[in-house]
């Protein structure tokens, strides 16, 4: 998928979400107008309208450009697949598997804190995380995990007095 196609997809999703917000979410989940000042729905409606208008303009621009057979500037039409780029945010394709691996482990950690406690879940999380990042030395992996978990626990529990379910 080229960048221009992916941008089109993003704008279509934004436009659909905006329509959904305008016709359903804002009317249902906004208090009724109290009779003075601006309506509680005014600013949300303005914000969503801006999103909708901008998305529609971008879609129209892309459609007109493709019908005319003109291409957008290279910067907009291509995407560096290898992740290279000059800017700090310019990156390659969306790597869903990569994203899912880290998000799943974070989600497991969150669930683990409430079920098996902080110490066990944090240790497991850090061991897994280091493995995913590419660490392969088991001794170093274990040492870092134990030290980080212990330091964080002591800092949270005794330094800041934050209640944290240890085990």
């Amino acid at each position: 998928m080229k960048r221009v196609q992916r941008d089109m997809l993003a704008y279509v999703l934004i436009a659909l979400a905006s329509v959904l917000l305008l016709i359903w979410a804002i009317p249902v989940y906004t208090p009724a107008y109290p009779g003075y000042g601006a309506s509680p729905a005014l600013v949300p409606n303005v914000a969503v309208s801006v999103m909708l208008v901008m998305a529609i303009l971008a879609i129209v621009r892309s459609v007109v450009a493709s019908r005319r057979g003109t291409t957008l500037s290279e910067e907009e039409s291509t995407y560096p697949e290898d992740g290279s780029g000059s800017g700090f945010t310019q990156v390659g394709r969306v790597d869903i598997v990569h994203l899912a691996k880290f998000m799943m482990s974070a989600a497991l950690f969150v669930v683990g804190i409430n079920t098996i406690g902080y110490i066990a879940s944090a240790l497991g999380f850090l061991l897994l995380l280091q493995y995913l990042v590419g660490a392969r030395n088991p001794v170093k992996i274990v040492i870092l995990s134990v030290v980080a978990v212990a330091l964080m626990y002591v800092a949270m529990r005794y330094g800041f007095g934050v209640p944290i379910p240890g085990y």
Binding site: L126, L129, Q130, V133, G134
Partner: peptide, 10 residues
């Protein structure tokens, strides 16, 4: 990086 990123995520 193998030390930095896990610690930052944590």
């Amino acid at each position: 990086s193998v030390v930095l990123y896990p610690v930052v995520i944590f």
